[in-house]
Computed example of a mutant assay.
Amino acid sequence: MPGEISLKEMKALEGQQVGVSDWFVVDQMMIDTFADATHDHQFIHVDPERAAKESPFGGTIAHGFLTLSLLSALNYSAIPRIREQVMGLNYGFDKIRFASPVRSGQRVRGRFILAEARFRGAAMLMTTYDVTVEIENEKKPALTATWTTICQFDPKDRPED
């Protein structure tokens, strides 16, 4: 459990690693379910025999967007919860790079560096993280991204500047 932090403490963490997630297995069932949800049934994802014979990966690989979508789950075990937060929202990505494929059965984890934390309006904290999704026992990461989220809170909880 990553614990809790206050809104006031967030700014002091800029430039620091705020967490590393637990390892998370990306198995064939997850890949198949993602393929069904996105209608992306390319053989390199869903046909282990064909992927072993015809792809350079030696078997099936996760969709890049599946790996990206795991950031939500990875951050829950890595980033401290903001005590005053009422709701969190994805705001978007400034940069995403898919550096290496995640093979079926591999484990991944997220590494989160808080690049920026700034207040917007009376009740929002915008946070930007430099994120790396690492693959266990691999030198290259699965992906790197710059991810912006919004923490909404009650305006009465906003710290004084």
Rank of each mutant, 00 (worst) to 15 (best):
A117L: 06
A78R: 11
A115K: 15
E116Q: 15
A145K: 05
G15I: 05
I5Y: 05
H41V: 05
H45I: 10
M87D: 03
V102L: 05
V46M: 11
A62K: 01
V26W: 01
F119Y: 15
I82G: 03
Q28Y: 04
W147D: 01
T60L: 09
R107S: 13
S21Y: 08
D154T: 02
E116A: 15
K140T: 02
Q17P: 06
V86I: 11
I61L: 07
V25L: 15
V18K: 05
A51G: 07
A145T: 09
P2Y: 00
L70E: 06
G92S: 05
P80Q: 12
S6Q: 06
S100I: 00
R111H: 06
A37N: 12
Q28R: 07
G88S: 13
T38W: 00
P80L: 09
G58D: 13
P155K: 08
V20Y: 02
A123Y: 05
A52F: 04
E160Q: 15
D154R: 10
G64D: 04
T148W: 03
S104F: 02
M10T: 12
A73Q: 13
M10N: 06
D130V: 03
I82H: 05
R83F: 09
S21G: 11
I82W: 03
G15P: 10
I44Q: 12
D161C: 07
K140A: 11
M29Y: 08
Q106F: 07
S72G: 11
G121W: 02
T144M: 07
I31G: 08
H41G: 11
E134D: 13
D130C: 02
G19R: 11
G19M: 07
A123T: 06
S72R: 01
I61T: 03
P2G: 15
T144A: 02
L114E: 06
M29R: 14
V18A: 09
Q28W: 05
L13G: 04
V25T: 15
Q16W: 04
G19W: 06
Q106I: 12
D22I: 01
R83E: 15
G110Q: 05
P159A: 11
F112D: 09
